[in-house]
Design a binder for these strands. Structure first.
Lengths: 339, 339
DNA sequence: GATAGTTACGGTAGTCGTAACTATC
DNA sequence: GATAGTTACGACTACCGTAACTATC
């Protein structure tokens, strides 16, 4: 057994059991992957993968349990590396942030500017994608931090910390008839075509369900993944735009007007910074989170390593009706006398 | 980085930083150990060990943190192996039990007989030693289970589950003057030389401190690690023996008499079965524990993997005043508005 | 026929052991 | 001087890649 073999198995489980894909991703030959996995299976004496002839089509029961343990081993190995690099130079290194366009454009600039001042020797890499992709990059270990409004709270392997709440606002071109109202209602807006985010972006779904919840008939004319695109079409007169407030505050608002009172129409959304449970990050990564979410105690973050186990333990404690003392040790008193 | 290197580092940390000792224990050359450790240090970019010239004299701060992670990795690797062997044949394999002479002689026979009937294909290996050695074997991964009265509860890396309470009794040769009393007191016994366990065995310390607690002047004539030896000297008239009650119930009592009422004189002792926190055992090992401690729910044992993390998490939660919800996730509400 | 996995074989790299050397106690 | 760790060198193992083969879709 060696770490390489474990990496191949974990990657195979992650990349849809496609060994060719694994080989490409890890920059090695496909035959190597195949052999190492078979060697590991032989050594452990179990089949990890279910095979239809030569194709891998699933995980065996043993394989499912094994990959859980394997993932943990690999994560700890990563932690070991990060831990070490911290002692080499604690203000030097790199930080990969997976995020969505909206966060990258309107939220992160001021924070990253400050971060760059504090840590001039840390190379920051921004990776943009859909909220789903943000989660994926975290799960694959390709990113240290993820910042998004959607999805990150729903993945059980991720720890999502809310950074701040924000609201949607409705925007129209200057001179639009709605801009003359002292305060708009949902019904006012629903009279016009709507331009907003895609369902999986920046609370796009929340916008749609707000209209639906009120039983309003509305015309969802166009959805896009970023506010700049939405603003462009609103400027062209396509309809009323509904975007995140920070896209007006921090972005280009030329030729556009925020409708008075529109920030009260939609439920608040919450941007979250997420990290992989069980992962140990650099100090500067924790500092960055601190800038995003100042009131979250550092220990919550460094403790993220433990949350995976914690959840398991709590589930287990509930099942077994076990009382967890403050010392953390189960207080079991199963005394039975010998005589 | 590979598992081999991690094993060497963990072993070095465990065997008093003596690489020669490590090499002997792991059946490899000393130069190999030296090289692999230096390679790992070079790759991680940190010094794990503090060196005085060529001697290893301690762990660096980085090394201390690293070895914690390393131990966890190795333990999970062990778990992976055990997990696998379970799927190969869940009623076949081996089980190593570290225990003391007293447990092995008077407690385990009936249990192991039943175990052998239930699992005829499991090879049981009994390793005897002092309670200290029992702990050590568990910590080194040389034994799956440890059974002892002493020490096992005091090691934070071990989970000790109480099996049963027992008491000491006082024994004398047949016809001894004390045997005619309807009920003996401590003072009665203290008039004669005492023969009992060594301080670190089977509650031997409890015996001594009971006399001391009463302010009685007593003559501790001979201590030994096992009851058979004590009985032998008592038969020869050396003095009054104080041994575990099961050594009279289940052992050879020829020529000896248990003094009436003597089982009330000393505080109860408790035999415990211990296992390494974080370790995943075979099903049959959990079954054996079930025979020893029927009232302990299985889940407590399989959950032992989590206790190490649990304790850390609780400590951390207390420090940070964090409320742990039943779902196990911290309920953090650090909302700060963007505007 | 296209895609995917296994087997075979050869080159290479890295691990292990012996032995000589060096440093600490 | 005894014990302990490092360095050097050679042998061997095992890993990786190319290529041919086999199997599934």
């Amino acid at each position: 057994m060696n770490l390489q073999q474990l990496r191949y198995v974990a990657a195979a489980a992650h990349y849809d059991l496609n060994l060719t894909e694994v080989a490409n991703r890890l920059f090695i030959s496909q035959s190597g992957v195949s052999k190492q996995i078979r060697d590991l299976e032989a050594e452990l004496g179990i089949d990890i993968f279910v095979r239809h002839g030569k194709r891998l089509v699933g995980l065996t029961e043993a394989g499912a349990q094994a990959t859980d343990v394997i993932k943990q081993i690999l994560q700890e190995a990563d932690n070991l590396k990060r831990l070490s690099s911290q002692f080499v130079a604690n203000d030097r290194g790199s930080l990969t942030i997976a995020t969505t366009h909206n966060q990258a454009t309107y939220v992160l600039p001021s924070v990253l500017l400050r971060f760059a001042r504090d840590y001039p020797h840390v190379a920051v890499e921004l990776r943009q994608g859909t909220p789903q992709q943000v989660c994926d990059m975290l799960l694959r270990g390709e990113a240290d931090l993820g910042i998004a409004t959607e999805a990150v709270s729903d993945v059980s392997d991720l720890l999502a910390v809310p950074c701040f709440d924000w609201r949607h606002v409705a925007i129209v071109p200057e001179g639009h008839v709605l801009s003359r109202l002292p305060s708009v209602t949902l019904a006012d807006i629903a009279d016009f075509p709507i331009v907003t985010y895609n369902g999986d972006f920046s609370g796009g779904r929340a916008v749609v369900s707000t209209f639906e919840g009120r039983g309003l008939d509305f015309d969802l004319r166009l959805t896009a993944m970023d506010a700049e695109v939405i603003k462009t079409y609103v400027r062209l007169g396509l309809g009323v735009g509904i975007i995140a407030e920070m896209a007006m505050i921090n972005g280009d608002e030329t030729g556009l007007v925020t409708l008075a009172g529109s920030h009260r129409l939609f439920p608040p959304s919450s941007s979250k910074v997420a990290l992989l449970k069980g992962s140990l990050l650099h100090n500067y990564a924790y500092d960055l989170i601190g800038m995003l979410a100042p009131r979250v105690p550092r220990a919550v973050l460094t403790g993220a390593r433990l949350f995976r186990q914690l959840e398991d333990a709590f589930t287990f404690a509930e099942r077994t009706d076990l009382h967890l003392g403050t010392a953390g040790l189960a207080t079991v008193s199963p005394q039975n006398s010998i005589s």
